[in-house]
Nucleic acid binder design. Sequence first.
DNA 1: CCTTCTGCTGAGAGCGCTCTCTGGTCTACC
DNA 2: GGTAGACCAGAGAGCGCTCTCAGCAGAAGG
Lengths: 331, 331
Amino acid sequence: MSKFKPTIEDVARAAGVSRATASRVINHAPGASAPLRARVEAAVAALGYRPDEHARALASGRTRAVDVVVSGCDSTKGWLGAHPYFGRVIAGMMPVLEEASTQLRLHAIGRDDTAEAIDEIAANASLGAVLADATPELAARFHRRCRRVVSLVPTAPMVPGMAADNTGGAYAAVRELHRLGCRRIAAIHGPAVNPCAIERRTGFRQAIRELGLAEVAADGDFDLQGGYRAAQQLLDRHPEIDGIFVACDYMAAGAIQAITAGGRRVPDDVSVIGFDDSIAAVCTNPPLTTMRLPVEEMAAAATRLLLEGIPASAHRQRFPVELVVRESTRG
Amino acid sequence: MSKFKPTIEDVARAAGVSRATASRVINHAPGASAPLRARVEAAVAALGYRPDEHARALASGRTRAVDVVVSGCDSTKGWLGAHPYFGRVIAGMMPVLEEASTQLRLHAIGRDDTAEAIDEIAANASLGAVLADATPELAARFHRRCRRVVSLVPTAPMVPGMAADNTGGAYAAVRELHRLGCRRIAAIHGPAVNPCAIERRTGFRQAIRELGLAEVAADGDFDLQGGYRAAQQLLDRHPEIDGIFVACDYMAAGAIQAITAGGRRVPDDVSVIGFDDSIAAVCTNPPLTTMRLPVEEMAAAATRLLLEGIPASAHRQRFPVELVVRESTRG
DNA sequence: CCTTCTGCTGAGAGCGCTCTCTGGTCTACC
DNA sequence: GGTAGACCAGAGAGCGCTCTCAGCAGAAGG
C-alpha cells in the first residue's frame, strides 16, 4: 500500500553501512564481512527492498533480460497466435529464466522492418536473444549486430544454434512407416525456404531412396489448410498411397481431415506420421503418431547458453527427434 | 560492427545544441524551434542514435514496457506451453505494443510464490500488467499492489477487466444445439474454481432450464484427457445424449475422440460445440463448431487501456462471444 | 618498532537520460 | 521607449545503482 519505494541508500542507512557495502551484499559480491552482511540482509528484509532493474542496468551496463524474437509475423496471418510452436519455446525458457531471475522480453518482427527491429534490440543490450524462427539471413544479421544470439532453427554455421535433428527425424519417420508395412509413402513438405522444412525434406528423400520407393510429395505451408489441400491432391493423383509423412503436426491435422473426408480411414487405409508433437498432435482424431521435436529442451538450452555467456566454441548443438506412437499409424 | 553506441550527448554535440534540446526533439516534446529540430533529427539519423531504455526509465520514472502475467504455471503441467490461449493473448497485444514502441515482458508465476512475484513486477514499474489467467484473489492482490492492472478473466469488480460474455456464449451454444434438434444435451464443464468455467456453467444451466431439459454434466480440467474421460463417462451413463456442450475446445478434442472411440459418429449421433475457437478447434476431426472467444481483441483492448492510462471509470468491459459453425454439429 | 601485505569499508565518480529552472531574445502593447 | 509576455535554449541537478580507488585497520614479517 505504501507508495514508498526504498532505495539502496535507505538500506545502507538502516544497516549503518555505506552504499557500496550494501551493494556488495545485495549482489553476493565478495569483500563484505559476515556481521555487516547480516545487518544489510536484515535491512533489506525489513524494508522490503528490491533493486531497481533500470538503475542497475544503467550503472553496470548489463541487463538481467533475455529477448525472444519471433520473425515472419506479418507474412503468415496469425502465425504467432495460431502456431503451437511459440508457446513451447517460451515454456521451455521460462523455468530457466525464473531460476536466474532474469526477465523475458518478447519481440515480434515482420519480414521487412528487420533492420529497425534489430537496432532496437541491440540498443538495449540484454543478455542475448533467442531467435525462434529466424531465417538464416536474419540470424546472420542479428549475429553480426548483437553477437549474443542463439537460433532455434538451422542456420549459418557461425551463429550458435540449438537445432533438432530434422533430417534424422524425417528419415526415421519414413522407416517407421515402411516397418509398419507402408509401401507407397508420400510426403507433405513445408515451405521450400524454411530451413527446418528443407532438412525434413532431405531426410525423407534419403529414406525413400534407400528403400527404393518412388518419391511422391506435395508442399504445404506449415498450416492446416496447406496440409488439407496437399493430402487431397496427393490422394487424388496417387490413390495407392498408404502412408504419408507430414512435416508438421498442424498440417497433419489438415491431412487427416482430407483423408477421412475423401472416404478413407486413418490408419486403416492410410497411416500418417506428423512432426513436432505439438498440441495439434493430440487434438486430431485419431491422435497423431509424430516425431517429437524437443522444443522445450532446445529453448532451455539456448537460454542457458545466453545466461552463462556463449563460449567461442559451442555452435550448432543437435537435439534428437523421437518417435511418439499414437493412433494414426496402424499397429 | 562499430561497437560505439552514441549517447544523447553525442547527438547534441553533433547538432550543436544542448542535451536538453536534443532530448526535447527526440521525445517530440514542445519547445524546440524548427531549425534546431531539423538539425537534431539529422544528427540522430547520422549517428544511428537510439535512446537507452534504462537511462530513460531511470530518469523519468516511466517505462515503455507492459507485463503479461501467466499464473498457475506449476499446478497444471505444461499449461503455458500446451494451451493455445496464451499465444493468442500475446498475438493480440503485440501489434498494439509495436505501434506504441513498447516492450512486452512475460512473467510466468506459480500458485505459491505469488507475493514474491508481485513484488518483483511492482518493483520495476512498467506501464502495467495484463493478467492472462489470474484468479480473482490474485488479481485483487495485484491490483492492490500495482494499480495498473487489467485482467482478461472475470474478476472482482474493482479491478479493470476485459472479459468475454462467457455466460451468454454458453447459453447460445445450448440454444444452437437445441435448434439443430438435440434434445438430450449434456455439458462438460471446466474446473469448478475457474471464473470462466463458472460463468459458462451458469449459461449452460440457464439455457437448459429455460428449455425444460434435464441437466446432465461432467467436469473436466480444461485439458484433453479431462474432456475424453468426461465424455466417456457421460455417454456411459446417458447413452441417449445427442449433443454436448464442452467448455473449452481442447477438452472438446478429447471428447470427440472419446465419442468416436465409443463407436458413435460426430455429428451424426452426437453434436459437439466447443468454446474458445482456438487452434484445437480446427485440428479435430471433424473440425469443431465452437463459440469464439475474442481473445486477441480482449488482449488488444487491455493493452490499449494500459498504454493510455486506466481511467477511474472503465471497469469490466464485456466482449461478445460468437458462434463459429464447422462440422461437429449436424447441418 | 617499522614496513609490507591483506582484507574491509566508504567516498565519489559516473552510467545516459529527463526535467526544472534560469536566462535571454523577440514581439506586443501601453 | 519601456515593460510585460511568450517563446526558446542551456545549465545542472538528479534518477538508483555499480565499481574503482583510496584509506585504514590488523596481521605478518624483518
